[in-house]
C-alpha cells in the first residue's frame, strides 16, 4: 500500500524535477542581492557626490578668496568689477531674517492647528482637514513665490508704506505658510501618539480639555514638536523660489526687514540664471555658499534626529 502511494504521488514531483531550471534560478538568486546593493549604494553615492562636489569646488573658491574674509566679511559684492567682496554674513543674515519671520508665523499657528486636530476635532473633521493640509504642503514653491510677490507684498505695502517691493517680510510670511503644514502634521503625529490613558487620567480629575492639552499632552509630546519645528526651519533655510522672487537681490547686513535682502539660496539662483562663466570666482562662489547652506541644514536635521531620539517618550 505504501509503495502504491509512492508511485502515485511522484507525478507532479517528477514534473517539478524535470522542469526546474536550476541554473537560471540560482544565477538570479545570486545576482539580485548584488544588483539591489548597488541600487542602495546609489543613495550613499549621492551623499558622497554632494559632499565631494561642494568640498572640491569650495576649495577652489578658497584658493582665490581667504576663508576669514568669507566667514567674517560683512559685505557681499561679488559683481563689483574692480574689487569684489565675498563676506558671507549678509547672505546668512538674509536667510535668518526670512527663517525667523517664517518661524514666527508657522510655529504658533502650526502648533495651534496640531492641538486642534489632535485634541479637539472630531474624527470626521480631522479626515477632512488633514488632506487639505497635505494639499497646502504640496503646492509648488514657485506658486508660493508668485503669491508672495503679487499678493502678499502689495497688501503689506498698504499696511506699511515704507515696505519695498522686494523685502524680507513678505517672503518670510509666505515661507511660514509653506512650512506650516509640516509643523502641524508632524506635531499632530507626536501628540496623537500620547496614549489616551494619560489624557483620561487628567480628565478624570476634573481637568478641562485645555489643561489636558497644555499641561499633559504638550509636555509629553514636546520632543516631537520641537523636532518638527527644527525640521521645518531647516526647510525654510533651504527654501529657494519664494525668496528669489519676493526677497530681492541686495545682500545687506542690517536688521531691516522692509528692504530688499538676499538669501544664500537666492544668490545661487541669481548667479545660475546669469552668465557667470565656468571657472570664474563667481562660479565657484555658488559652491561655497551652497556648502554653507548644506552645513546649516545638515546640522539642523541632525539636531532634529537627536531631539526626537534622545527625548523620545516611552509609553
Amino acid at each position: 500500500m505504501a509503495s502504491q502511494g509512492l508511485e502515485k504521488k511522484h507525478s507532479i514531483q517528477d514534473m517539478i524535477a524535470q522542469s526546474r531550471n536550476k541554473k537560471g534560478k540560482k544565477f538570479i538568486e545570486k545576482c539580485m542581492p548584488i544588483i539591489l546593493v548597488i541600487t542602495a549604494l546609489i543613495s550613499v553615492l549621492t551623499t558622497i557626490g554632494i559632499v565631494m562636489t561642494l568640498i572640491f569646488e569650495t576649495f577652489e573658491f578658497f584658493q582665490r578668496v581667504s576663508i576669514t574674509d568669507y566667514l567674517f566679511g560683512t559685505e557681499w559684492l561679488p559683481f563689483s568689477g574692480s574689487e569684489p567682496l565675498y563676506g558671507v554674513l549678509p547672505l546668512i543674515l538674509g536667510t535668518l531674517k526670512v527663517s525667523v519671520i517664517a518661524a514666527c508665523v508657522a510655529v504658533p499657528l502650526g502648533i495651534a492647528v496640531a492641538i486642534y486636530l489632535s485634541e479637539y476635532a472630531s474624527d470626521k473633521t480631522r479626515r477632512i482637514i488633514k488632506p487639505i493640509l497635505e494639499v497646502l504642503a504640496g503646492v509648488p514653491t514657485i506658486v508660493y513665490g508668485f503669491f508672495a510677490l503679487t499678493f502678499v507684498t502689495p497688501i503689506l505695502q498698504e499696511l506699511i508704506p515704507s515696505l519695498k517691493i522686494f523685502n524680507a517680510l513678505s517672503p518670510g510670511i509666505v515661507v511660514g505658510i509653506m512650512i506650516l503644514p509640516m509643523i502641524a502634521s508632524l506635531s499632530e503625529d507626536a501628540m496623537s501618539s500620547v496614549p489616551n490613558s494619560i489624557r483620561e487620567g487628567a480628565l478624570a480629575l476634573g481637568a478641562t480639555k485645555l489643561e489636558v492639552s497644555l499641561k499633559v499632552v504638550l509636555p509629553a509630546a514636546l520632543s516631537g514638536i520641537i523636532a518638527s519645528v527644527v525640521l521645518a526651519v531647516s526647510r525654510a533655510i533651504g527654501e529657494t523660489m519664494i525668496v528669489s522672487l519676493a526677497g530681492g537681490a541686495t545682500p545687506t547686513f542690517d536688521m531691516n526687514v522692509t528692504g530688499s535682502i538676499q538669501t544664500m539660496t537666492a544668490y545661487i539662483v541669481q548667479v545660475s540664471s546669469g552668465d557667470a562663466g565656468y571657472g570664474t570666482t563667481i562660479y565657484y562662489s555658488i559652491y561655497a555658499v551652497g556648502f554653507t547652506l548644506f552645513v546649516f541644514t545638515l546640522l539642523m536635521n541632525l539636531l532634529a534626529q537627536f531631539i526626537s531620539k534622545r527625548f523620545r517618550e516611552e509609553y
Binding site: G238, G290, T297, N301
Partner: peptide, 18 residues
C-alpha cells in the same frame, strides 16, 4: 544616510547635478 538626504535643500541637488 537616506533620512539625511531627504533634508538636503533641493538647490544643493542642483549643484550636484551641475
Amino acid at each position: 544616510n537616506i533620512s539625511n538626504l531627504a533634508g538636503v535643500p533641493s538647490i544643493v541637488f542642483g549643484l550636484l547635478g551641475l
